[in-house]
């Protein structure tokens, strides 16, 4: 039987599958459930300095090729998060804290506190396309901002830092390189693309309350795969390939493009929490059938 264990920035994982931020990650109990269901690592929903209600509903919809969302970083704020996630002893997989801020100083303030939790890594999404004041809409998706924010967070924690990048970025290679030079430990590629829009033609109105939202799921997968492929050629730090992965074949595709670990998010909408165990089983089955003993034999295979 194929060995699915992998090591990401020194973090031992039972399999390469990472619960992506923004899906299921609201509470310690839900993270525990996702980890027990087979996620090799789990990511919290992003935490900001102050509590945020996010955008009004509708915030999350599906369409025929994926998910579109404009949640708007609803979260209880760092103070409450420190209590909610104080004890992660029940969670059988490593936990990644996702941290957001309006500027480098705020990123550092939140990251410094979240890093005190028993988390394995800090993820910095510099790439949300639908929250004013944050991510792409705050100009965080440039090489300069990426360097500044990553440096600021590197100064307050020794834990691994994952910089999450946008598939929209023209200068994706430069952004990944800036993150690496500033002390990032890995690149999470990618955040949602767009923003896109859905209009109800009877109501003659956009359905999302924010009108536009980030596009994930099947529509994003080939774009994410290309981004991972490009970033793998640009930097030496590992890549967490995220975007539309719903089957074992998709996950192996990501590994071959250069990913060391594979994010899974939108697939929970169709496949439930059980999706992690199913994808892992499909990966193992394919590896057995094709004489691949270990995950690392697949990483970057499409480049060799």
């Amino acid at each position: 039987m194929a060995d699915l264990t992998t090591t990401l920035c020194g973090i031992r994982m039972a399999n390469p599958l990472v619960l992506a931020s923004g899906v299921l990650g609201t509470t310690r109990a839900i993270l525990t459930r996702a980890a027990r269901a087979g996620a090799g690592a789990v990511t919290m929903k992003s935490i900001s300095l102050e509590p945020r209600d996010g955008h009004p509903n509708p915030t999350i919809l599906t369409f025929e090729a994926g998910v579109i969302n404009a949640v708007g970083y609803s979260n209880p704020g760092v103070e409450e998060a420190l209590a909610e996630f104080a004890d992660l002893g029940d969670v059988p997989s490593p936990v990644i804290a996702s941290v957001v801020g309006r500027n480098a100083e705020e990123f550092a303030r939140v990251a410094e506190r979240m890093a005190r939790l028993p988390v394995a890594a800090i993820e910095l999404p510099l790439s949300c396309p639908h929250t004013p004041g944050y991510g792409t809409l705050a100009g965080q998706s440039t090489p300069e901002a990426t360097r500044e924010i990553t440096r600021a967070v590197r100064a307050v924690t020794a834990k691994p830092i994952f910089v999450k990048v946008s598939p929209n970025a023209q200068a994706l290679g430069e952004i990944a390189a800036a993150a690496e030079q500033a002390g990032a430990s890995a690149i999470t590629a990618v955040n949602s693309m767009g923003p896109g829009m859905v209009i109800n033609i009877e109501a003659r109105r956009p359905v999302l309350a924010f009108k536009m939202g980030g596009v994930t799921g099947a529509a994003l997968r080939p774009v994410a795969l290309r981004c991972v492929y490009d970033i793998y050629r640009t930097v030496r730090i590992p890549v967490i390939g995220t975007g539309g992965v719903a089957t074992g074949r998709h996950a192996i595709e990501m590994l071959m493009a250069g990913a060391t670990a594979v994010g899974v998010g939108s697939a929970v909408a169709g496949g439930g929490v059980e999706v992690f165990a199913r994808i892992a089983a499909e990966m193992a089955e394919w590896m057995d059938r094709n004489g691949v003993a270990r995950v690392e034999e697949l990483i970057g295979a499409a480049h060799r």
């Binding site: 923004g22 899906v23 609201t26 839900i30 915030t59 599906t62 909408a269």
Partner: peptide, 10 residues
């Protein structure tokens, strides 16, 4: 609630 179909866990 937000999504209604089990994705966000709000």
């Amino acid at each position: 609630m937000k999504c209604g179909f089990g994705l966000c866990a709000q």
